[in-house]
Design a protein around this nucleic acid. Structure first.
Lengths: 164, 164
DNA sequence: CTTGGAAAGTCAACAAGGCTGACGTAAATT
DNA sequence: AATTTACGTCAGCCTTGTTGACTTTCCAAG
């Protein structure tokens, strides 16, 4: 019974099983980013712009600091991306009213349109995968991914998960 | 019953559920690559070297063409990485005996040592995640990832999955 | 009110790792 | 003999990450 996942045998923890999981992550992540990448190519934007747009949409009014923590890049790196999005009128940056040092970020109408296009594409693939695998598999999928995150990232993730 | 995954309701296919899955992929992939990245930094190598090493180890004697297809990059990009690995004595390139145009790739002793270090780190995280989530979750995890791949990548994945 | 520190923005320089295009060589195939 | 395939390489470009240094703005504590 080589594939009977588990029980006392813990067969799902063999190096071979782990290797399969590693390779699955590698190949799946390619699929995960493929559709947005395709849409973005040709525009002046890339994956980094997609991520910024996603999380600004996800948490409208978030600050640069928050976004920095979520994305895990340097402010110089984020700024370059944010700069073009603001200049192109996809993101609006608003000086904070309670703390004027902070900038609160929002998607403009134009930004919302691109966000929708990108996330429609990405969700379509997720939806197909979820549907093919079924609800029980989806639950397992999310459990394993969550366990795989660094604690800091898990906090970010859970904050987003509840917050919205 | 908002979280009762499935049945006729297909609640697991709501945009909200899909968004959670998307963000889980994003944050989990960071964890997935974090440990090898940490090991590699300081050496002259990066994530691209890790991938090359992984798949050469996985399919000893594979050709450059095969590796190209698996990794999905251009030969110029792969060559830069492979060049340094060969020069540094981590990878051995052997002219094909049946078709002398092909180069067959192998890890050297030195290459195997680094591979082991990298994959130990990555497997440790996977193992912890698998253990935390349990065998049923792991099965679902793999099902969803597999469904998320492009068909071409799924072929690559399955070839590797069986082959070894 | 002054001062220290936080939030943000910016300039400059650099590196990794993708990409295209062009070209060369050896070997297999037709 | 001609063509195609597999590989290697040169040159140049782009995105997206990094450090380091510096400025402006502003809140809050002394």
């Amino acid at each position: 019974m080589p594939e009977t996942a588990g029980g006392e045998g813990l067969l799902f923890l063999t190096d071979e099983q782990l290797r399969k999981g590693i390779e699955a992550m590698f190949f799946a992540y390619r699929g995960f980013t493929a559709d947005p990448d395709r849409i973005l190519e040709g525009m002046d934007y890339g994956r980094a712009h997609h991520r910024a747009i996603h999380f600004v949409h996800r948490s409208p009014g978030t600050t640069v600091s928050n976004l920095l923590a979520t994305l895990g890049v340097t402010k110089q790196s984020l700024n370059r991306v944010l700069r073009t999005l603001i200049d192109d009128g996809l993101v609006r940056s608003e000086k904070g009213r309670v703390d004027a040092r902070e900038r609160h970020l929002f998607l403009t109408e134009k930004g919302l349109i691109l966000e929708r296009e990108l996330s429609d594409a990405q969700r379509a693939r997720m939806r197909a995968a979820y549907r093919a695998a079924g609800p029980a598999a989806v639950q397992g999928f999310r459990q394993v991914l969550e366990a795989m995150m660094d604690p800091e990232m898990r906090k970010q993730y859970n904050r987003l998960k509840e917050g919205g």
